[in-house]
Amino acid sequence: MSRVLASIGSAVLALCREIGGMVLLLGYTVALALLGRFDRREFVRSLYKMGVVSVPIVAMTALFTGGTMVIQSGIFVQRYQAYGLLGWGTVYAVLREVGPILIGLMFSGRVGANNAADLGTMVVTDQVDGLRALSIQPIPFLIVPRVLAMVAAMFCLLILGDAVAIVGGMAFGKLLLGVDFASFWASCADAIKLWDLTVGLIKGCVFALLIAITSAHYGLQVQGGAVGVGRAVNDAVVAAALLIMISDDLLTMVLR
């Protein structure tokens, strides 16, 4: 019995340690960002590496997500013969929930994992120590630009993704359910408000921030060569997914 308690205790302590580390990193990063003390070139470079390069995967994800949402809304619509609601049902879900979550998860995989791997490899090959030896602080130089770039990239990618998902949804609505574009569009035009889009964007940016902090945290703490980097990426992605789900919950409740 005492062994069970001990293992629970150590698990809780480990959790606190991780969360504590991430909160500290977050605080430090936000402070530096607000003070404007970060490397501009790294920011631009990261914007390209994270934003532009993610466009294909986000677009593809959004396309299939739009399609799936149309199908799921389609069942209700078919049952109640309320074809007029298909547009609204799909778009509302995409903008507020499904869009941010799925694009967030793909972003976590594509950019978050990449970032953790990148930073982890830098740690393992002593490049981070090298920076310190040149008296360049790693956090303003490496971390803050990447965090900012991730949030900015996510914002743009989410807008793009929402657009693709809606267009994809319209196309699949026509193809699979016979709902034509005009009625799809009509059903969203008055019911969908700007606030729906905004809620999604706020969620997306929060997710991006979480992804950035978790990937940086685990990336910088890598120990042990190739296996360590793999494990860090694993931990980063899992932590990000968990935090995305939990924060989605909280944000939905708050942002009615």
Partner: peptide, 28 residues
């Protein structure tokens, strides 16, 4: 070790994407 990091990244992205596509196909 770089390679292992990239492989892990690709695995997460492609597996997730495979789930999304399969979801769509089976739902349709």
């Amino acid at each position: 070790s770089e390679g292992v990091g990239w492989a892990t990244t690709r695995a997460v992205v492609f597996s997730s994407f495979a789930v999304i596509v399969l979801d769509f196909l089976i739902s349709a």
